[in-house]
Simulated scan of single mutants.
Amino acid sequence: MEIITDIAALRTRLQREPSIALVPTMGNLHEGHLSLVRIAQQNAGCTVVSIFVNRLQFAPHEDFDRYPRTQANDCQLLQKLGVDIVFLPDEKTLYPVSQEFQLLLPPLADTLEGAFRPGFFRGVAIVVLKLFNIVQPQLALFGKKDYQQLHIVRNMVQQLNLPIDIMTGETVRSEDGLALSSRNSYLSGVERQQASHLFRTLLQIKQAIERGHRDFRSLEESAESDLTSHGWQVDYIALQQRETLLPAHASDTDLVILGAARLGQIRLIDNLEISG
């Protein structure tokens, strides 16, 4: 496995690779990331995993400075998997000057996560586009756990005519259903025991719809009330059309239920696809 920190060196190294898969990460790797790496390895001759904590997608009050950085352990995990290249740039490498050029994202980027984290998706789109330009992969891997992010990246690739196939990996969960996330490490012991309640709440909505319940708003309100009664601060519980991520109607069949809520100081997100 090669660890490369310089853009020019990475481009030179990749010139001899006929097929490249990119797995963008912010590090602190867990099985969710590793499952994406395995998919990449099955579909390309060379797998590049990037590790970079992107300041542009953090608001001033968020956890950029304390976000878990575990590069040595991350590289050990990737070496065990036989990853070809780890791209490990520092901030000056990806942002050599102030990022004055910005991207204008569609209105969807200001809903759901975007409504509670203004500018988040712009920061994501900029760093992903930079990585695409640097690595020039034929395919890139993103997990369904960050469902709206996946949707926006996929649309960006389509609308900018980028020659990249976006592949997805299913959300990887703990035994109790909690979606694996780097920020789960922030949870206290008591909070960790309660954290899977968000998944169970979304699962109840999924099961109700599959039984024929079509009053989506009442399901959302009931879920919000239940989480609040258990000490959560709910940002949103939203049933959306899977293809567009617009609010779902009773006649829609391909759905996704997305949720975001705080347990103490820790904000968790999750989602479940539904065929109703």
Rank of each mutant, 00 (worst) to 15 (best):
G119S: 08
A44Q: 10
N43A: 09
S188C: 00
A140N: 12
L178A: 08
K145Q: 05
L203V: 00
N73C: 00
I126T: 13
V48I: 07
A179L: 11
T5Y: 05
R13K: 12
V153D: 08
F52I: 01
N161R: 09
V234P: 01
F216A: 04
Q57K: 02
G45P: 07
R38N: 04
E2M: 11
A250E: 12
Q149E: 12
L263G: 09
V49D: 00
P118S: 10
P106F: 00
T253V: 13
Q79I: 00
N133D: 14
H230E: 14
L36W: 11
T47G: 10
L272R: 09
K130C: 08
L103A: 11
V135S: 05
A59Q: 09
N73R: 13
N28M: 08
L255K: 02
I51K: 00
G231P: 14
I209L: 15
E17V: 12
L29Y: 10
A40K: 08
Y147T: 06
K92G: 00
I164N: 05
L131N: 04
S275D: 12
M156K: 10
S185Q: 14
T47F: 07
R11D: 05
L94E: 04
Q159V: 12
L105D: 04
Y147K: 12
V86C: 00
L29E: 06
Q241G: 01
K92T: 13
I209S: 09
F132G: 06
I237G: 10
D63P: 00
L162I: 00
A208I: 05
G123W: 08
L202E: 11
D252G: 00
T47I: 10
S35T: 14
P18I: 05
S185I: 12
G231E: 14
D84I: 03
L129A: 13
R217P: 06
L141V: 14
R192I: 01
D74H: 03
E221A: 15
R38V: 03
E17F: 09
R217A: 13
T93Y: 06
